[in-house]
Amino acid sequence: MSLRLLHIDTSARAGRSGTDPHGSHSRRLSARFVERWHALRPGDAVEHLDVGQQPPGFVDGRWIHAAFTAPEQREPWMTERLAESDRLVDQLLAADLVVVGLPMYNFGVPAQFKAWIDNVVRVGRTFGFDRARGAVPYWPMLPPGKRLVLLGARGDHGYGPGGRIAHMNHAEAMVRTAFSYIGLTEVHEAAAEGDEFGGALLADSLARAEAEVDAMVDAMVDALTGAVTAPAAGQPLVAV
């Protein structure tokens, strides 16, 4: 059975590190994941969404008014105001696997990606709300079986679980919370650190992160097919 991947890049940097001057490490990792996946499962569809370069609109008062108005009672301007959100929610609903390149900006997620999250964590589309339910009026609405991959990049080092400044990492934790709230709880992560230091620290971290990405893809594909044949050494992966 073929799957659908939603590949989201969120970095303000347009290129990939190692390929483009001043390129993004998170774009490098997300591209590596998707390209390796495509090499192993070429029949799976991939949709790329670049919110780093083309961010969605921010939620405002008119958006909130429209979203919390019952669909059958919405005025034409409300439908128009929610059109972008509807498109983004439809993309998410159609995806089996969501792959996010996630740089840390000031201990959290980029504003562009927060805008995307605010557009898809939406009453009546991805979570339900009913005051009659009492103390817990919310429930998730995403179909089961979806998976999330977060591929991070951080300027300092030690943000990972058990690290010296893990308590300052509000990026992955925030995304996990938002997705679990709407019903997606299976999350896989890898990250490169040390961009602000450069040198061997960054190079070693990137190498570890790339190895983790490769192993992650192989394990996930293996779980789907029962067997994996990785690309031969030196063989280029298929670009998507």
Rank of each mutant, 00 (worst) to 15 (best):
199 G>H: 13
86 D>K: 10
176 R>I: 01
149 V>L: 11
32 R>N: 09
225 T>K: 14
37 W>K: 05
159 Y>C: 03
222 D>Y: 12
221 V>W: 03
201 L>S: 14
83 A>Q: 14
82 L>R: 11
59 V>M: 08
81 R>H: 14
37 W>A: 02
196 E>F: 14
49 L>D: 03
217 V>Q: 03
204 D>S: 15
93 L>R: 13
194 G>F: 12
21 P>D: 08
158 G>C: 03
234 G>S: 00
92 L>W: 00
237 L>I: 13
68 F>D: 10
150 L>D: 00
227 A>W: 03
158 G>L: 07
221 V>L: 03
229 T>N: 00
217 V>D: 02
224 L>R: 07
95 A>P: 09
184 L>Y: 09
239 A>V: 14
5 L>I: 12
201 L>Q: 15
164 R>W: 06
37 W>P: 03
240 V>N: 14
85 S>N: 08
142 L>V: 09
236 P>Q: 09
126 T>V: 05
203 A>L: 11
92 L>M: 05
98 V>H: 01
49 L>F: 06
110 P>K: 05
223 A>M: 07
83 A>H: 12
165 I>W: 07
64 I>M: 06
109 V>M: 10
189 E>L: 09
66 A>G: 09
173 A>D: 11
45 A>F: 11
224 L>I: 02
46 V>M: 11
57 G>I: 02
81 R>I: 12
224 L>E: 07
117 I>R: 08
136 V>C: 14
174 M>C: 11
177 T>C: 12
92 L>V: 01
153 A>W: 06
180 S>I: 08
216 M>N: 06
184 L>S: 08
52 G>C: 05
157 H>F: 15
180 S>Y: 04
182 I>S: 01
196 E>Q: 14
232 A>C: 02
174 M>I: 13
50 D>N: 10
207 A>I: 01
140 P>D: 04
32 R>G: 11
135 A>H: 10
41 R>W: 05
211 A>C: 00
71 P>A: 00
160 G>T: 13
29 L>V: 12
112 Q>F: 04
127 F>W: 11
107 F>P: 06
188 H>Q: 07
83 A>G: 09
100 V>Y: 05
